[in-house]
Amino acid sequence: MKKCLKAGYFKLKKCVSRISSVKGEYAVGTIPKWPERLTAQPPRSTLLKNIADVYDADTRRWLRRVAHYKNSLNIKLGTPAVRNVMDMNAFFGGFAAALKSDPVWVMNVVPSRKPSTLDVIFDRGLIGVYHDWCEPFSTYPRSYDLIHVTSIESLIKDPASGKNRCNLIDLMVEIDRMLRPEGTVIVRDTPEVIDKVARVAHAVRWKPTIYDKEPESQGREKILVATKTFWTL
């Protein structure tokens, strides 16, 4: 049984399914082969109440969203310009799964204070880590061509108190550090949060554009797409 480590202050936790020769409910032999396993329900998604329905809905939602990104927002997904991708709030890895036909490598990050879904990400055949976004993320030796984040303010809030544990500006400076020059940032959040993000984006010399959500979406979200520029004096 392999183990994985949450970012800081957490004990090791089992997060990879057992091999089929070992008795147990999480046998790898029950997981479909690639690429079917990417969209099939992972065995562990059925162990909790309503998780299976949430998983299916999340998979369909991200197929619609990624299609909107490519068709309406002029994002270079599916081209050689985007190879290294990060999803900062990955949940079940639906964003990465929707990119299965693209020549990309996706780091799925599950915030350490959110529900532990890294096991489902691994069962889909994806890669990922736990991380506390109030701390630096180890990026050596790579930077990212595209960084995607939904609900960016939730990454800095304490779920119990609802108070910010760190600052949105600090988080966006960390994103800027991880992103290569001329790389792309996609942020989905409420209009109020997107306005805050846009102000900081200008301060760190990104070129942001704000778009409406895809027509099928029922939420209040806006989408900010920004390009990191080369700094000149």
Rank of each mutant, 00 (worst) to 15 (best):
E135D: 14
L77P: 02
N164P: 06
S17A: 12
T30I: 14
P181V: 06
P111M: 04
L77W: 02
T227Q: 11
R165Q: 13
P103H: 08
P111G: 04
L146H: 00
T59F: 12
N84Y: 06
N74C: 14
I152M: 00
D176E: 12
V82L: 04
I127D: 14
V185D: 00
K6C: 11
A81H: 04
A57W: 12
S72D: 10
R199E: 10
R18Q: 12
E25H: 09
F95Y: 06
D189L: 02
E182M: 10
M86C: 02
P208V: 01
E174P: 05
V109I: 07
P42Q: 04
G128D: 08
E174F: 02
P159G: 04
K14T: 12
A52P: 04
K11T: 14
P215R: 13
S45M: 07
T79F: 02
I127C: 14
R188G: 12
H68Q: 00
W133E: 03
R64D: 10
V185T: 03
I75V: 10
L99M: 08
C166P: 07
H68S: 02
G94S: 14
V110Y: 03
Y55G: 07
A98I: 07
T117A: 05
S20T: 11
K213A: 15
M88V: 03
Q218H: 09
S138K: 14
A96G: 03
P136D: 09
T190L: 12
C4E: 10
S217W: 06
V110N: 07
C166Q: 03
K228V: 05
D102N: 14
T139C: 07
Q41P: 06
E25S: 15
T46A: 08
W62C: 05
D132R: 00
N74S: 15
R188K: 15
I147D: 02
M178E: 05
W62H: 12
L155N: 01
D195W: 06
K76I: 03
T59I: 15
T227D: 07
E214D: 12
M107G: 05
D87Q: 04
F91V: 08
D132Q: 01
L179W: 03
A81N: 10
T229I: 10
I75L: 07
A198C: 11
I210K: 00
K2M: 13
Y140D: 12
H131A: 04
W206I: 10
I152K: 00
D145L: 03
D145Q: 06
D123S: 01
K207M: 13
I186E: 00
K228Q: 07
Y55E: 06
S17K: 05
E182P: 02
D195F: 10
R18H: 10
P43F: 03
Q41T: 11
V54R: 15
Q41D: 06
T30F: 11
N108L: 02
R199P: 03
T209H: 14
T117F: 07
S72C: 13
V197P: 00
